[in-house]
């Protein structure tokens, strides 16, 4: 075990994946010798050469198109999009190509070797274009998995699974936690299964669900609620698509209450999808309406970031409202 921050854990996963197979490639804007704007890929060019970890020209649609081609050829392509906010020029390649490659060809071809890494989320004074959480756009597309880790241990295990997973994966990295989140991480290879949520803490009164950077916020809210005597079950969804319906509904059948928090705006967010499924499967067991704590329906703002964010106080208040319903 070694103490790592989330970036170091990601770097370690990439390092081990590239050591394991010669046909694992890592690339993106500034990801070569410089190691990326957040330094997630630092040291990889020195270790594996500039043909395995390299800079791309500044063109996101090109990066993902190239990655689709490389993965379809049988290699493992690990493409970085510098910020989640800049993924949209590649939207066509992801939605119409990555996600449909296997299905449209009747499994003649696939891009299972593709992993798209991208930092997402707010709380870093990044304004409209360095703060967004675009998971819902992609969750609406069958054929690509979406994964987001909450801490360094999870990041390494989930990323190693994502890289060698037989399906393309969008791996969203909570950039606010890149250096802020640290923990003990095994130095060797290990994996955490995709599609499986993690019950972080068991409890009886209410289920509190989130993913990625929201888990840190959620845990703070839960701490406060527990001081009031509320027993919370905390779940990290880990894989947003396809999501672990079983673990979530089992928990809600037990507690009868559910609060979901997400960073993204509320309308059309993935929390809404979860709420719809849970009310369908747990209707007669629900003690209160399912609550969504999220951003409001405005572009991610700079000067009102603090007010905008789905912070721990808003989650705490939602837990209280749910308990007092």
């Amino acid at each position: 075990m070694a103490k790592m921050n989330l970036l170091q854990a990601i770097n370690s996963a990439l390092d081990l994946a590239m050591a394991k197979h010669d046909n694992v490639y890592s690339f993106g804007e500034d990801t070569g010798g410089f190691g990326g704007v957040f330094r997630a890929t630092s040291g990889l060019t020195e270790k594996y050469g500039k043909h395995r970890n390299f800079n791309t020209p500044l063109v996101e649609q090109g990066i993902i198109g190239f990655a689709n081609g490389l993965a379809s050829q049988g290699s493992y392509a690990v493409a970085e999009i510098q910020f989640g906010d800049y993924i949209f020029p590649a939207f066509d390649q992801i939605v119409n190509e990555t996600a449909k490659f296997r299905y449209r060809s009747g499994n003649e071809f696939n891009v299972g070797g593709l992993t798209i890494r991208t930092p997402y989320g707010g709380g870093i004074a990044g304004g409209h274009y360095h703060s967004q959480s675009p998971e819902a756009y992609f969750a609406h597309t069958p054929g690509i998995k979406i994964v987001t880790p909450r801490n360094p241990y999870e990041a390494k295990g989930l990323l190693l699974s994502a890289i060698f997973e037989k399906n393309p994966v969008l791996f969203m990295e909570p950039k606010r936690l890149y250096r802020a989140s640290t923990g003990e991480v095994p130095e060797e290879e290990y994996t955490i299964p995709l599609g499986k949520a993690d019950v972080v803490k068991e409890g009886n009164d209410i289920t509190v669900l989130g993913w990625g950077a929201q888990m840190e916020v959620t845990e703070k809210a839960v701490e406060k609620a527990e001081e009031d005597g509320v027993s919370c079950e905390v779940i990290d969804l880990r894989t947003i698509s396809p999501w672990d319906v079983e673990t979530v509904t089992q928990s809600v059948l037990k507690t009868g209450r559910l609060v979901i928090s997400q960073e993204a705006p509320i309308t059309g967010g993935f929390a809404s999808e979860i709420a719809a499924t849970v009310q369908d499967k747990c209707f007669l067991y629900l003690e209160s309406p399912i609550a969504r704590v999220s951003g409001i329906d405005v572009p991610y703002p700079l000067c009102h970031e603090k007010e905008y964010m789905a912070d721990h106080l808003k989650i705490y208040e939602a837990i209280k409202r749910s308990m007092n319903y």
Binding site: E29, D30, G32, G33, F34, V37, N55, P57, L58
Partner: peptide, 12 residues
């Protein structure tokens, strides 16, 4: 330069 990426040979 585009951040760290030099124009000649890496950008075009």
């Amino acid at each position: 330069y585009a951040i760290s990426t030099p124009a000649q040979g890496e950008q075009y």
